[in-house]
């Protein structure tokens, strides 16, 4: 935690932490406490008066069918994004790990989508799936599928999941490949001598040995799907059609900035904060475990 020897006390350390602490106080602590406070208020539509209502906003959310279904939708969305991007990454990493020469080249070719902003990923996919011009609707039409994510909620959901998962494959691939490359070669060779073929080795040796990475990636991907996919949804579907792609983060934004329901939006913020805190704690417990391991 601290060095055995340190500099004598002086005002200097306070000056050094001051910028970070000031930014934290002004832009983190204060807004967060404001969100907490506002979540206990109901404001009229013009923002002229407000009333302290204790937990009414939360009670209202608990009764709000729409909010509950948003919760459910977010869960489905996040698990599908995590599952899709992780399984594609796992397969690619499994093969890349077998490559003796050129593994780095494949890595280079596979990791760059990490650098693409979520909103740009959304823009690329919305163009590919543009109902009139897009290349995919054109081919889908040939096999008799009418594609229009502006009207079809399921197709809209599929599109945002696809775009979100596509962007995240790079990240997962990187961590999976690193995990696989850190498995001692001798373990795999021992399994091969025991007569296990490549596929069997992957299931019985590689997969169990990289399970800590899998767990870590699940947490990271769920956090990603919860918060960072805002841009994708905003540009691809704007939560529609008929709220079919509205996830929690999008709803906080939409109710607050578009619907101007400050109390309700703040209450949702508070719930989201609780979720983030739980996820962060889970993530840290994992890191601790890994250190022991």
């Amino acid at each position: 935690m601290l060095k055995r020897v340190h500099f004598p006390s002086s005002p200097l350390p306070y000056l050094l932490v001051a910028p970070q602490i000031i930014v934290t106080l002004v832009f983190f602590m204060w807004p967060a406490s404001q969100a907490l406070y506002q979540s206990l208020l109901i404001e009229d539509a013009f923002g002229l008066s407000s009333e302290f209502v204790w937990f009414e906003n939360f009670a209202a959310l608990a009764d709000d069918e729409q909010y509950l279904s948003t919760f459910w939708r977010t869960a489905v969305f996040s698990s599908l994004v995590a599952f899709l991007s992780m399984s594609v990454a796992l397969i690619l990493a499994g093969f890349a790990d077998r490559v003796v020469k050129g593994a780095t080249t494949y890595r280079t070719l596979l990791i760059w989508p990490y650098a693409v902003a979520p909103v740009l990923a959304g823009a690329l996919w919305v163009f590919m799936f543009n109902p009139t011009l897009g290349i995919f609707p054109y081919f889908l039409d040939m096999i008799g599928i009418k594609w229009n994510h502006y009207l079809n909620g399921r197709q809209a959901m599929g599109l945002v999941i696809g775009a979100a998962a596509w962007k995240q494959v790079a990240y997962n691939f990187l961590f999976y490949l690193a995990a696989m490359q850190s498995i001692p070669r001798s373990i795999i060779e021992a399994a091969a001598i025991d007569g296990a073929g490549p596929v069997r080795r992957f299931w019985t040796q590689t997969l169990p040995l990289i399970s800590p990475t899998t767990f870590f990636l699940i947490v990271i991907n769920v956090v990603y799907a919860f918060f960072e996919t805002f841009g994708i949804i905003h540009v691809v579907t704007q939560g529609g059609p008929a709220s079919s792609t509205t996830i929690l983060v999008y709803k906080v934004f939409n109710d607050g900035f578009v619907g101007l329901d400050l109390g309700g939006s703040a209450a949702q913020s508070v719930i989201l904060m609780v979720i983030v805190i739980v996820m962060t704690v889970v993530q840290f417990r994992y890191v601790e475990k890994k250190v022991e391991y």
């Binding site: 967060a32 969100a35 906080v252 934004f253 904060m273």
Partner: peptide
């Protein structure tokens, strides 16, 4: 205090 900021992504405290 610095640790707390880890838990509050901009998306969840956007309005305030």
């Amino acid at each position: 205090m610095i640790f707390i900021t880890l838990m509050l992504p901009v998306e969840v405290r956007i309005l305030p």
